[in-house]
Simulated assay, not measured.
Amino acid sequence: MKQQPEAQNTTSFIFKLEVMLSDTHHTTALEQLIKKLNEANFADYRIESGIQLGVLMEQTKQLNPDIVPVPITSLEEKIVPNGNYSEITEPSNIFTKVNRYMNDNTLIRLVLNKGLGIKKSIPCRVLRMDEELQLITVYHVDEKQVYTFHLYEIEDIIA
Rank of each mutant, 00 (worst) to 15 (best):
E90A: 09
E6K: 15
T11N: 11
K16S: 14
L63N: 12
G83R: 02
K35E: 12
P123T: 01
N9I: 03
N38S: 01
M20V: 14
V138M: 00
I88S: 14
I51D: 13
L30C: 03
V138Q: 02
P123C: 01
L151W: 06
K36A: 12
L112F: 07
R109T: 15
D23T: 00
H26D: 06
S121Y: 04
L112M: 03
E153G: 03
E48V: 06
G115W: 03
K61M: 05
E77Q: 14
Y101H: 13
E39T: 05
P91L: 04
T24S: 13
L133T: 08
I136V: 10
N93V: 08
L116A: 13
E131Y: 07
L112Y: 05
Y101W: 12
T28M: 09
Y85W: 15
S12K: 14
V70C: 03
V146D: 01
Q4Y: 14
D44C: 04
E155R: 11
E132D: 03
Y45E: 00
A29C: 01
E153L: 01
H150N: 10
I94W: 14
A43M: 06
E58P: 00
P5T: 11
K16H: 14
Q134T: 06
L53Q: 10
K114P: 05
K61P: 00
N82L: 15
K119W: 07
G83P: 00
L63H: 10
C124P: 04
N113C: 04
V68C: 07
N84S: 06
N64Y: 12
N99T: 09
D66G: 08
Q4R: 15
T137L: 01
P71K: 08
Y139K: 03
L112N: 02
K16L: 09
L135S: 00
K36H: 09
F149Q: 03
I154R: 02
N99D: 12
N82G: 08
Q52I: 07
I157F: 02
